Simulated scan of single mutants.
Amino acid sequence: MTLTMLTYTLITDPAPLAASEAGRPPSTGTVYLLITNTGQAAAYWSTIKVEVPVGNGAGDLTSDFNRIKPKGEYSTRSGTRSSVNVQPGPQGSNAFQATAPGGRTPFAPGDYMVLTLENVTVAPTAGLAVLKVTENASRTKIGRLSNSFAAVALVKTAPKEIPAPHSFLADNAVVDAGTKVTLSWEGSDDFTYEILFPGGRKPVPKVKHTGSHGPYSLALDAADAPKRDTTYTLIASFGTQRHTFTTTVQVRNPILETLTAINGVTTPWVQGSTKGDGAFTFSKGAMHVRRESGSQEAGALYAGEATVSGIATEYVKGLKDGDGDITFLPGGVKVWHTRGSDLLGTLYASGADLWCVNTEWVQGKSSDSGRIFFPEEGLHVNRGNGAKGIVSAAEYRRYP
Rank of each mutant, 00 (worst) to 15 (best):
P254E: 12
L17W: 01
T313R: 01
K334R: 13
K284Y: 00
C356P: 04
G200R: 02
S369M: 06
K156A: 10
N94W: 04
G23V: 02
T182A: 14
K180E: 15
Y348H: 12
A393S: 14
P124F: 00
R104K: 12
V54Y: 01
V204A: 04
H243C: 03
T76E: 08
R104V: 09
P226C: 05
Q87C: 04
A298S: 14
F191Q: 15
V84G: 09
N253A: 06
K156M: 07
S167A: 14
T76M: 03
A129L: 06
Q91A: 15
T7L: 03
G211S: 14
T230P: 05
G55A: 01
D224M: 07
N253M: 05
G276E: 09
K71V: 05
K141M: 13
A150G: 00
V207K: 14
A170D: 03
L218T: 06
G310T: 03
S46W: 02
G340I: 02
R252W: 05
G127N: 10
G322Y: 01
P106Q: 15
D229M: 05
L117Q: 11
G29Q: 04
F245D: 11
E292W: 06
G92K: 04
S146M: 09
N253D: 14
G57Y: 01
T38R: 13
A173C: 00
T266V: 13
Q97R: 08
V335F: 13
E257V: 04
S392L: 13
T338M: 15
K156H: 02
Q40N: 11
N119Y: 06
Q296V: 08
D321L: 12
T121R: 10
R81L: 05
A41Q: 14
S63T: 12
P215Q: 09
L33S: 03
I235N: 11
R201P: 07
D64G: 11
L183S: 00
N56F: 02
K227G: 09
R144L: 12
Q250V: 05
T258S: 15
L343I: 09
P14W: 09
M113L: 11
A126F: 00
A173W: 04
I48L: 13
V357T: 13
V122L: 01
K160S: 13
P400S: 01
S82E: 09
A22N: 14
K208H: 07
R24I: 00
A300M: 12
A18F: 02
H380D: 15
P106W: 07
F149N: 15
A225W: 02
V381P: 05
A164W: 08
T30K: 08
G39P: 00
V122W: 00
A18Y: 01
S366H: 10
H166T: 12
L183A: 06
H288W: 11
G294T: 08
K156N: 05
R201A: 15
K71M: 07
L34C: 07
K320R: 15
P14A: 11
S366D: 14
T244Y: 01
P70V: 00
Y8L: 10
F328T: 03
I235K: 12
V130P: 01
A261D: 02
G299H: 04
T134G: 01
T346K: 15
G389I: 05
A173V: 07
R24K: 13
Y315S: 09
V31Q: 08
G143K: 05
S20M: 09
S295E: 09
L256N: 13
S148R: 14
S341Q: 06
T231R: 10
T210Y: 00
L17M: 04
S78M: 06
N94R: 08
R398S: 12
E376F: 00
N147W: 02
K275H: 09
